[in-house]
Design a protein around this nucleic acid. Structure first.
Lengths: 236, 236
DNA sequence: AAGTGGTCTAGACCACATT
DNA sequence: ATGTGGTCTAGACCACTTC
C-alpha cells in the first residue's frame, strides 16, 4: 500500500476539524502512531509530514506534533480594490511588507504584451514579502511601468506598502482588472522565504492592475501560503 | 541536504518552460540523473516525483518520464455565470460530468446558515466528477435546496450537466454570488478520483449560487486538479 | 536478459528537549 | 540517559517494457 499514511492523515484531519484535538494539543508521537495503527516508522512519518504540509499541525523537534493555531484562515478579498495591508487590517492582523529586492530593466515580451509597452519601455521589478504578524504570508513579484512611476527608487526606503506609494506619491488609483489563480508547489526559494516545506501547496495569483480602470500600470504574481490564507471573490 | 532534489526539479522546470525539453520528450532516466547530478537514487526519485506531482511530466513504468502535454492550462472564468460544460467548450474541449452519488437529507448547521434554511428544510447532495476529454478535472460536492428543486432525483438519470437541469427543468437562472479559493492537498478519495498523486496540489473553490441573484439555491465545494486548470477572475 | 520506474524495509546517525 | 522528531543510506523486491 502506498496510501497507508493517507488513512492516518485523513483520520487526524477529521479529528481536528471536529475539535477532538484542540488547538495546541499534542498528537501521539511517532512511536505511538506505529503502535496504534500498526505501521512502520516510514508510514507514520509520512502521515505526520502530510498533516504538516497541509498546515494542520506543526512539529517541533524533540517535543512532538501540535495542532496548528489557525483554524480560521485569513480571507483576502480579491476584488477590484487592491490594498493588501488595508485588507489584512479587517482581519484584525497587523500586516507588513518587506522589499527584498528591486531592479530597473527593459520589459520582456510577456510584459510588453500585458502592459501595452513597446521595446523602448522600462519597468521596475519588485520582490516583496508580506507578513501577517510574524508569519510569512506571501511572496510577490511585481512589475511596474517606469513611465508611470518615474524615480520609484527614491521612494522605496523605508518601504511600508506598495499601495501607499502608488496612491500617496504618484496619485494613482490602482484597480485590479483581472486575476488568475492556480494551485501549485513552491520552488526552493519561495519555500524558504515563506518558511514552509517544499511540499506545502501554494496559491498563485497573477493580477493585472490599472489606473482608473484604463491605464495598465502593474503586473504581479503572488505566491501565497495555502495553509494561512484564502482568497474570496464576490460578485455584486 | 534535504533540498537537493529541488535543485534538480527546478532545473527541469526551467528547461521545460524554455522549451529545451519539448512536449512528449523523454527526460533522463533515474540512473542517468544519478550520474549527471551525482546524487543517490532517492534524491533522483524525489526530483522526478516532484515534477510529476506538479504536472510537468508523467512517468510510465518501464519506459521513463515524459514532458506532459498541456503547456497551456485550461482557464475557467470564475464569473457570476456558472456553467461548467459551456465554459469548457470555449477552450475547445469536450467536457462531461458524471454523477457519482446523490442523497437527500436534512440540512446541517453550516448549510442552514449559508442557504438561509431552517431545521425543517431538506437538501440534495450531489457528488460530481467533471472531465475534459478523458482527463478528470474536478470533484464537486454540491448541496441544493430541496424546496427549489423538488423531485430532483427524477431528472438525474441520464446526467449530463447540472446547469442544464437547473435551467432546463426548473427554469432557474443560477448566478454565482461569491467564491472562496484555497490551495490544498487532496484527501485519499479525491486523489484517486482525480487520478493524481496525493502530493499534487489542488485548487479548492467554494461557491454560493443563487437564482436571479437573490434566492440562494446551491452551495458547492469543488476540488480542481492544480496541474490542469486555472481559474480566472475578471472585473469589468 | 537488461533497463526502466515503483515500493518497501531495517537501520544508522543526527539534533533537540526533558528528566 | 531517554524520548522525540529529522535525515540519509544501501539494498531488496516487484512490475513493466524492450530487445
Amino acid at each position: 500500500m502506498e496510501t497507508e499514511h493517507l488513512v492516518i492523515a485523513d483520520y487526524f484531519i477529521q479529528a481536528i476539524e471536529q475539535a477532538v484535538y484542540q488547538e495546541g494539543e499534542r498528537l501521539p508521537s511517532e512511536s505511538e502512531l506505529r503502535e496504534q495503527f500498526g505501521v512502520k516508522r516510514s508510514v507514520a512519518r509520512r502521515a505526520v509530514a502530510r498533516l504538516c504540509d497541509s498546515g494542520w499541525i506543526t512539529t517541533i523537534q524533540g517535543k512532538g506534533s501540535f495542532v496548528a493555531a489557525r483554524s480560521t484562515p485569513l480571507t483576502y478579498a480579491l476584488s477590484s480594490k487592491t490594498a493588501f495591508t488595508e485588507e489584512m487590517m479587517k482581519n484584525g492582523v497587523i500586516a507588513h511588507a518587506e522589499l527584498l529586492h528591486w531592479e530597473k530593466r527593459t520589459a520582456n515580451q510577456h510584459e510588453r504584451r500585458l502592459l501595452h509597452l513597446d521595446h523602448a519601455d522600462w519597468v521596475y521589478q519588485l520582490e516583496i514579502r508580506r507578513r501577517a504578524g510574524r508569519l510569512p504570508l506571501s511572496m510577490t513579484t511585481t512589475c511596474l511601468v517606469e513611465r508611470i512611476v518615474p524615480d520609484l527608487e527614491l521612494h522605496l526606503d523605508p518601504f511600508v506598502s506598495l499601495y501607499r506609494i502608488l496612491s500617496g506619491i504618484y496619485r494613482l488609483q490602482p484597480q485590479r482588472l483581472s486575476s488568475v489563480v492556480r494551485a501549485s508547489l513552491p520552488n526552493a526559494d519561495d519555500a524558504a522565504q515563506l518558511e514552509i516545506s517544499a511540499q506545502s501547496p501554494i496559491l498563485q495569483v497573477e493580477s493585472l492592475v490599472s489606473h482608473r480602470g484604463i491605464v495598465p500600470i502593474e503586473y504581479s504574481r503572488s505566491r501565497i501560503r495555502g495553509d494561512l490564507q484564502e482568497s474570496c471573490v464576490s460578485f455584486s
